[in-house]
Amino acid sequence: MDIETLLKNTSRSLYLSVQALPGNMRPAFGIAYLLCRYADTIADTSILPAQRRLYWIERFPLLLKEQNRQEISLLASEICGGSENPYEKELIKNLLPCLQVLNQVSAKQLPIIMDVVQAVCDGMKIDLNAFPEEHSAQIQAFQTPDDLQHYCRLMGGKPGLFWSRLICTTTKIDMPEKEFYELGQHIGDALQIVNILRDLPKDLRIGRCYFPAQDLAQHGLTAADLLIPENATRFEPVKRKWILWGVNNLKSAVRYFAQLPKCQPGGRAAVAWPVLWTADTLLKVWQTPDLLNPQKRVKIPRSNIYSTMLCTPPILISNLLFNKWLGGKLGKFN
Rank of each mutant, 00 (worst) to 15 (best):
M1R: 06
D2F: 06
E4A: 10
L6F: 04
K8I: 04
L14R: 05
V18C: 08
I31C: 02
Y33W: 10
L34F: 10
T41Q: 05
S46A: 14
I47E: 05
P49W: 08
A50C: 02
I57S: 06
I57T: 09
F60I: 01
L64V: 09
I72F: 06
A76T: 14
S77W: 04
C80S: 15
K93P: 00
L95D: 05
L96S: 01
C98Q: 14
Q100H: 04
S106E: 11
A107L: 11
K108E: 15
Q109V: 03
I113Y: 04
A119N: 08
D122E: 15
K125L: 10
D127V: 03
N129G: 02
F131Y: 12
E134F: 11
E134V: 13
H135T: 15
H135Y: 14
Q140S: 14
A141Y: 00
P145M: 01
D147W: 07
L148W: 08
L154I: 12
P159I: 11
P159W: 04
G160M: 05
L161V: 08
W163T: 14
T171S: 07
K172S: 13
P176Y: 02
P176C: 05
E177Q: 15
F180L: 12
E182S: 14
H186I: 00
R198M: 02
L204P: 14
L216H: 05
H219L: 00
T222I: 00
T222D: 02
A223R: 00
A224I: 02
A224H: 05
D225N: 12
L227I: 06
L227Y: 02
P229N: 01
R234I: 00
R234A: 10
P237E: 06
N248W: 06
K251M: 11
S252P: 08
R255I: 01
F257C: 06
A258L: 00
Q259N: 13
K262N: 09
Q264T: 04
P265R: 05
A272P: 13
L276P: 10
A279N: 11
K284H: 04
Q287D: 13
T288G: 00
N293Q: 10
P294Y: 08
K296I: 13
S303G: 04
N304M: 04
N304T: 15
T308L: 11
L310C: 08
L310I: 09
T312V: 05
P313E: 06
P314Q: 07
I315K: 08
K324P: 00
K332F: 03
